[in-house]
Simulated scan of single mutants.
Amino acid sequence: ARGEATARGEAMFVPVGIKKLTNVAIVRYKSHGTRFEIACYKNTVLAYRSGFEKDLDNVLQSTQIYANVSKGVFAKDEDLINVFGTSDQEAICVIILQKGELQVSDKERKAETEHVFRDAVMTLVEKCVNPATNRPYPPGMIETALRDIHFSVDPKRSAKQQALEALPKLQEIFPIKRAAMRFKVNVRSDKAQELIDFIGENDGEIETNDVGSTEVSLTFTVDPAKYRAFDKFVKDVKGRLEVVTLAVMEEGTSSGTFDEDTMKSTVKQAELDKAEEALAKMEISRPVVARSAPDVQSRATQLETLSSDDANILVKRGPIAALPEDHESRRERFADIDKYQEGWEVELRAREGSSIVDAVFYSPEGDLCKTYADARRKAMAAAKS
């Protein structure tokens, strides 16, 4: 009978209390062990919460409160009164909109996260420069750098705030800084010298200085982090502060002085150093366990039993900087030790019957260090003493 009714074009039976909606954004609110949901238009909930949208008719598909929007099941009046103290569904919709959790699919969440990530990239492109050229980096390079430092975004937070929080980590792997802001300040003549001194104290650079009969107008650039300090200073002296340029930078993009390959190798080296330091700490804290197989020796034991005569020496003991070109990567990596303490020497040995190359280090006092991590740690300790 149902099939015949459908064939005749008649509406199918829908139980009372059920109304199905599709293509909606669901906001869910749980309290007192009961779930309540409201059906909203897509992309309007966040606009309402941020204050850009104030008309509920543009946000809600219906003022009906649901127990389950997907199944079209209405919430019971007694549950509404028990939780909210009223059965006024429009008033309850406002509460759910403000306090409820917006339900987002995995696909939508991924798209939103990627959108915030792109915004973060453009924030850094628009507000940061290469200190050497004062030019911005191209978006592709910034994106690569952020992914290399494993930067992840929170879709619920400001992209600008998260981008600027990532700046210190980016500065560890390649040269980048906030572009300076340009300000124009007007103060009374008797406050001019006080303003000039304040600009100098905050590492600002004066570009123009127009002196009038009763007023002085200065244009200068300074780090954006100093904005609040200057705003307070100008208010205290009853002057006027105007932002002329949000980011002072040269035209073009900065790509020639620092390429992506250099950046990636820097990231790889930093990660390698961290891994070696962690491994060294593990080796120090690990309890000594007797080995059941006496023929298996550790790397340290092997090196200890090898003398300069019976080891297959690839590069004889000498200064780190003297390592030959075919060991350039090791030379660059080990150079970090000489930065902390000069006079270290290195010797490269090949293990018997293996292609593995071991590096052993000798301190300026002649002490043997069997790993790079040990040598680096000893050099750092000497630099601090």
Rank of each mutant, 00 (worst) to 15 (best):
T113V: 03
C40R: 09
G33Y: 06
T123Q: 09
N82G: 10
Q64N: 12
Y137E: 00
G100M: 05
D88F: 09
V121P: 02
E126W: 08
L97T: 02
T144I: 08
L56T: 04
D79C: 06
V83L: 07
I38L: 08
G72I: 01
V125Q: 00
L80V: 08
V24E: 05
K19C: 06
P136F: 02
K54G: 10
K30S: 12
S50M: 08
T133N: 09
E108P: 02
F84C: 06
K19G: 10
Y29V: 02
T144V: 11
G100K: 01
Y41R: 11
I18Q: 14
I92C: 05
Q89H: 09
G140K: 11
L60G: 00
E101H: 14
M122C: 05
A39Q: 02
E143P: 06
I96N: 01
G85K: 06
M141I: 11
V129T: 06
V27P: 03
A39P: 03
I142V: 15
K110N: 14
T123G: 05
T22R: 15
T44W: 05
S62H: 06
V104M: 11
S62N: 08
I18R: 14
I95L: 12
K127H: 12
S31L: 00
K110H: 14
V129G: 00
I18V: 15
Q89R: 12
K107Y: 06
F52P: 01
P136W: 01
T44R: 13
L56M: 08
K110L: 13
I81K: 15
G51W: 01
T44Q: 13
Y137A: 05
K99C: 04
L97H: 02
N134D: 12
I95G: 02
G72E: 09
V116Q: 04
A145Q: 00
V121I: 15
K99H: 13
N130S: 08
P131Y: 08
A120M: 03
S62D: 05
A47P: 02
N43T: 15
I142P: 04
L60A: 00
T63W: 07
F117P: 00
G85R: 06
L102N: 09
L146A: 04
K20I: 12
V129S: 07
V104P: 05
K42N: 10
S87C: 12
A75L: 05
D79H: 11
P136C: 06
R35M: 12
R118Y: 07
Q103V: 14
P139A: 14
V59N: 01
N134I: 02
I26K: 08
D119G: 09
H32D: 15
L56A: 09
T144K: 09
V69M: 01
R118E: 12
I81D: 13
R49Y: 07
A67S: 15
D88C: 11
V129M: 02
T133V: 09
K107E: 14
E78H: 14
K107I: 08
F117H: 03
V73K: 11
Q103W: 11
I26E: 00
K110C: 03
E37M: 03
D55Y: 08
M141Q: 12
Q61F: 10
E126C: 07
V69G: 01
S62C: 06
V121S: 00
D55I: 07
E37I: 01
K127N: 13
I81A: 15
A75Q: 05
N130V: 04
Y41N: 03
T123N: 11
K107D: 11
E108H: 03
E143S: 14
G51M: 04
G51A: 10
F117T: 04
